[in-house]
Design a binder for these strands. Structure first.
Lengths: 117, 117
DNA sequence: CATATATGAGACATAAAGGTATCATTTATG
DNA sequence: CATAAATGATACCTTTATGTCTCATATATG
């Protein structure tokens, strides 16, 4: 969608193009529409368009609205609370790495994604 | 277990101590036993002990034997193959980050984990 | 040897994630 | 106005991960 930014895309069109199950894709699109990233229009010739500039839509926002970023609040071993008395030797490493990942997600927009390097 | 390295631990003992479901824990222990990280002894007073030095057991090995490290071979957005014509702007970032995570997992042993910083 | 306390093995149950089906409503177009 | 092509909403199905149950076997100890 980002690649031809101004065209209204129907779920059916995207389904054929992306090889993602039709109904499932529709569910996702509806979700994104409710989250406000895209705008939907019903009826014949209807479909979805971005509702704001794609350079203003960051990956982190999308993830956040669809499934939340909470999974990142766990330690690298998957515990919500570190099971050790004092923080384990991977603690600092993970804190730093996780921060840099989140930062990357927060600063990369859809526009950045489709930009050639 | 690593914290009192030489004692035989029964599933029941660990279950009470760790608050992990008894039967589920047993399954996991059996799995680890089959993978060769721990040795099991049956019968009264039986249980599990490490079968080699905990400084020789790396987190990566454990993950690998239990569920595999393959999930890391995906791009950061979850695709097995990058869906863009050319690699996206997060590609390099993720390649690097992922490498450093795997490296951390490969070089951190159980002994390191329980070491106070 | 009987009993209590272990693991081995594998079937079964439950919950969450991923995916499908259906009906209602909307709207462009002939 | 009828029809085709679209989304909205929601219930349902399927698969996978997580967790449970049960029976068999092993072994230390009185």
């Amino acid at each position: 969608m980002a690649q031809n930014r101004n065209e209204v895309c129907s779920a059916n069109y995207l389904h054929k193009k992306l090889d993602i199950p039709h109904q499932y894709l529709r569910q996702l699109l509806t979700k994104l529409s409710k989250s406000g990233f895209i705008h939907s229009s019903r009826g014949r010739n209807g479909g979805f368009v971005f509702s704001k500039e794609i350079s203003q839509i960051y990956i982190a926002d999308i993830i956040d609205s669809v499934e939340g970023l909470e999974s990142f609040n766990k330690c690298i071993l998957g515990f919500t609370d570190c099971p050790f008395d004092v923080k384990c030797s991977m603690h600092d490493f993970w804190e730093k790495t996780r921060g840099s990942i989140i930062n990357e997600l927060k600063t990369t927009s859809l526009a950045d994604l489709i930009l050639r390097k």
